[in-house]
Simulated scan of single mutants.
Amino acid sequence: MKKLFAVIAALAFTGSAFAATHSEKAAAGDAPKTDQQNKMASCNKEAAGMKGDERKAFMKDCLSAKPKTSTAQKAQQDKMKSCNAEAKGMKGDERKKFMSDCLKG
């Protein structure tokens, strides 16, 4: 009889532990979405009304597309390329100082 009581108590404890874990996972749903989740939501909105192969192809293209770079990012990338070209042959501290000054100015 004691063994039966121990088994029932263990099962009750396991069930309450499972419930706590389940409620923790549900609360985690309130966490901020990742970039990929945001991208999925955006693509889903754009795919409204599409069905079948058309939707599947659109979602594949949409989700695999690289994020668009802003004008400021593009300008910074161009500046970096230009400074790198000018710093060719420089090494060490000389290169670091030149790159710092070039990218600032």
Rank of each mutant, 00 (worst) to 15 (best):
D35T: 08
D30M: 11
T69K: 15
G105E: 12
F18Y: 12
L4F: 09
P32M: 05
M50Q: 04
K2C: 02
K60W: 01
K51V: 08
R95K: 13
K96R: 14
L103M: 15
M50V: 01
R95C: 05
L11G: 13
F98P: 03
K3E: 14
A26S: 13
A27S: 13
K81S: 06
A72P: 01
A65Y: 03
A10T: 11
A6M: 13
G89R: 04
S100W: 06
G15K: 04
D30T: 15
P32K: 03
C62R: 02
K2M: 12
T71C: 02
L11E: 05
K39R: 07
N84F: 03
K68A: 14
V7L: 10
D78S: 05
M80Q: 08
S23A: 10
A28F: 10
T21L: 13
K88I: 08
M59G: 01
M80P: 00
A19F: 09
L4A: 12
K60Q: 12
T14M: 14
K66E: 15
C43T: 01
E46M: 08
A6I: 11
Q36R: 11
A48G: 07
L103N: 08
G105W: 01
S70Y: 06
K96F: 07
M90T: 07
A26D: 12
D53T: 09
A31W: 01
A28C: 13
M50P: 03
T71N: 07
M80H: 06
G15T: 06
K56S: 04
T34G: 03
K97V: 11
C43V: 01
K81I: 07
L63V: 14
Q36N: 09
S70F: 01
S16W: 06
K91Y: 04
V7I: 15
M59I: 03
G29E: 15
A65F: 02
C43D: 05
G105A: 09
Q76N: 07
Q36F: 09
F5M: 10
M90I: 02
K45S: 13
A17C: 13
Q37T: 02
K3G: 07
A72R: 07
R95I: 02
S42A: 15
D35P: 05
K39L: 12
A27M: 09
G29K: 15
S64Q: 12
S23R: 15
N44K: 10
K79P: 00
F13T: 14
K39V: 05
L63E: 11
D93Y: 05
K45W: 04
S100E: 15
K2D: 14
K33F: 08
T34D: 09
A28M: 11
T14W: 10
K81N: 04
